[in-house]
Design a protein around this nucleic acid. Structure first.
Lengths: 139, 139
DNA sequence: TTTCCTGCAAAAGCTTTGCAAGTAC
DNA sequence: GTACTTGCAAAGCTTTTGCAGGAAA
């Protein structure tokens, strides 16, 4: 679906700012923070304020267009990929996507081999696993 | 192990503030925020500043005495229970412990029955599940 | 006595809010 | 034209920092 139709289907007006923020978010594989989105979109010849980024992201979350990811430090991160997957945060704060099957195996057996597989497949350095189920919006 | 011995085993000095913060955290089943711990401990005839609470909690985390839980809103939450379990956050922001086996079943099959079981066993109202694996400290 | 810890106050970082001007529909 | 959206600036909340005084070992 085109982004404009996506907004319309949710009763959201299609503004330049929303389009750019949404597309920057959907394009990114880095699960960006509000600040990162602000800097990405602002430079691309679009008038934009931080307040709008925050408002926009909250609106997107409310309408199921993206998800706010829990984090322990820095600002909140956002993900427009609502498909079935988990997230893995490295010591540096980066967030990586993890296929559900791999994540579930990790949960079932945090063996050295599983960790090695995670590290190999994602190219990250795993230091500790802190697992949480977050239940915070409509089913 | 007594709390004082626990501190000593980690090379930490045993101060009034640390003892009270640690025991308030260990006693609580609510996964309190720094602010909540500050208010709990401060009222119980103990001189305490917010800065000390933050310093203390970071020190505890560094020494493996507690864990910082990722969250999407409000302040970070802390848990001194390092045993094998997962967390479930409700729409109101409360964090509940979930036995690992139940959490893994949730991950494997987010069926209506599983949700109902979660709700029944924890007495909470589940609205959405947002799942993340956080890897952010030493293994 | 030495080293570590605490409190205070200030600052920094992230996010929200009120309101007037502007824009989508 | 109406209702929604934006930008700005200020405020709010959480967390960190520098430093001097104080306490543990």
């Amino acid at each position: 679906m085109e982004t404009k139709e996506l907004f319309n289907s949710q009763g959201l007006r299609c503004t330049r700012q929303r389009l750019e923020v949404y597309e920057a978010l959907a394009m990114s594989k880095r699960h960006p923070t509000a600040e990162e989105l602000f800097r990405t979109v602002k430079t691309s010849q679009c008038v934009l304020s931080r307040a709008t980024v925050y408002n926009t992201l909250e609106t997107f979350c409310e309408h199921g267009l993206c998800r706010k990811l829990p984090s322990t430090e820095g600002g909140a991160r956002y993900d427009a990929d609502l498909s079935d997957h988990l997230h893995l945060t490295t010591i540096s704060g980066d967030v990586h996507d993890v296929p559900s099957d791999l994540g579930i195996r990790l949960l079932k057996s945090l063996s050295a081999e599983t960790i090695a597989e995670i590290e190999g497949r994602l190219g990250v350095s795993v230091k500790r696993v802190d697992i949480a189920l977050h239940v915070d919006a409509d089913f």
